[in-house]
Design a protein around this nucleic acid. Structure first.
Lengths: 229, 229
DNA sequence: ATATAAACCAAATGGAAATTGGTATCCAAC
DNA sequence: GTTGGATACCAATTTCCATTTGGTTTATAT
């Protein structure tokens, strides 16, 4: 499968010639260098020989290559997938709640700064729809969407991404213990008033109240969660 | 910008006609329904009138629309991206700092609760090493490790995972504008005292002070960051 | 006034064509 | 018989362009 590097003996000259050429070359921002076919022509060597030299530099970690993409100086960018499944495996509902209590009040605080009228309109719609929900399933859909709308309103794509990750883990952890009650949430379910308070605070640009209301809400949710176990 | 729904008075007949048509329609897996131009023809109404009816259904949350994509039944799906590269592409240094200021003070607060003596010992080592650093490169290594040790001390694998994600994005975003100064940090660099204050607060289990010290520190970093641009 | 039709726009999609690193084959040279 | 070069081919990826789609504007008619 893999050919041991020591198997071939590329002329050392080609490697050093390549090194010099690359050093003298001014690379684009991403460190991409010309395709092999051009490079071999520019250096006056065959593609086979050039590739042997490139093999050496790659083994040294000086560059990395990928089919269809090209050859790049530097080290290969990290495999960049926050493995949600792995996170969920290590975590548990209590941790998820603690993480929510850490993140979401501060997100709400930021949202109170930056929310647009459209954001607030969508929050209000989520409130209304969650009140009209006929099943817990529907209720949770609109509850989730309300919280995400608040995260969107923070106008920070990174915070939103972190929130989504947290949410994905939450779904994965909570999966299997979903509420399947046929009954629907009572009209005086604690979340209704608490959600209302959060949106109210955001609408009034009261950043401290927004954070506090979100914290209160999540702490209530946490208490209910622990009670049930 | 937004047209108030009450502004127009679409024939209620069209809305109910549309409701019926959609109910009778068997939708594809993704809930996508025919483009407006087809729908209006099928229903024998003008596109303008159809759109008014669609506006109603959208306001009710029964469907969502997006230019270029189409119109879909149900509620708008959340596009969850745990892809760090994608996150980094959409984000920027300012956002990263805001996200840090949101997350890390609260993480420090949690850490002040749960840090073990071993955690604190490691934090102190990071402090010492960062003071001894001979280059900015070294300094940043120990700075990063200090912040991560604090996240570890929160004893919450999910928070730690989110912190790591944030950090990966930070590295990706900051890439290319790394400090290459040959000089090393001054002995009175602001971070030294600020780091000290954070660890001190954690050690004394002063959760409020820990959060405050971390927030102060990151706000200083943010200020310096913006100054340089 | 209101509704309709038509045209236009920008976002998004889809697919063909071109590009690129990797691999196999054939052939000449020594 | 081994080595190296030229060529062709492969699959992953990108690039480019036409098309589609929801959103908006304009002109026309009733």
């Amino acid at each position: 499968m893999l050919t041991p590097p020591s198997d071939t003996h590329p002329e050392k000259g080609i490697v050093t010639q390549l090194r010099g050429y690359l050093a003298q070359l001014d690379l684009p921002e991403d460190g991409r260098l010309p395709p092999e076919r051009e490079l071999s022509a520019a250096l006056g060597v065959s593609r086979t020989e050039l590739r042997k030299a490139l093999d050496v530099l790659e083994a040294e970690g000086q560059l990395w290559r990928h089919v269809g993409k090209g050859t790049f100086m530097g080290s290969r960018p990290l495999d960049t997938f926050a493995d949600i499944a792995a996170l969920a495996r290590r975590s548990n509902p209590a941790e998820v709640m603690r993480a929510r209590i850490v993140m979401e009040p501060e997100i709400a605080r930021a949202a109170a700064f930056t929310a647009t009228p459209a954001d607030i309109a969508e929050m209000r719609m989520c409130l209304a729809r969650s009140r009209q929900a006929e099943t817990w399933r529907q209720y949770e859909t609109w509850d989730t969407r309300l919280h995400r709308t608040i995260a969107e309103a923070s106008q920070n794509t990174l915070l939103l991404g972190l929130f989504d990750t947290l949410n994905a883990v939450r779904r994965a952890v909570t999966w299997g213990r979903l509420r399947t009650d046929p009954v629907k949430p009572h009209a005086d379910h604690h979340s209704f008033a608490e959600h209302e308070a959060i949106v109210e605070a955001i609408e009034h640009r009261d950043i401290a109240a927004a954070a506090a209301a979100m914290r209160t809400h999540l702490q209530t949710v946490e208490r209910k969660l622990l009670d049930r176990q």
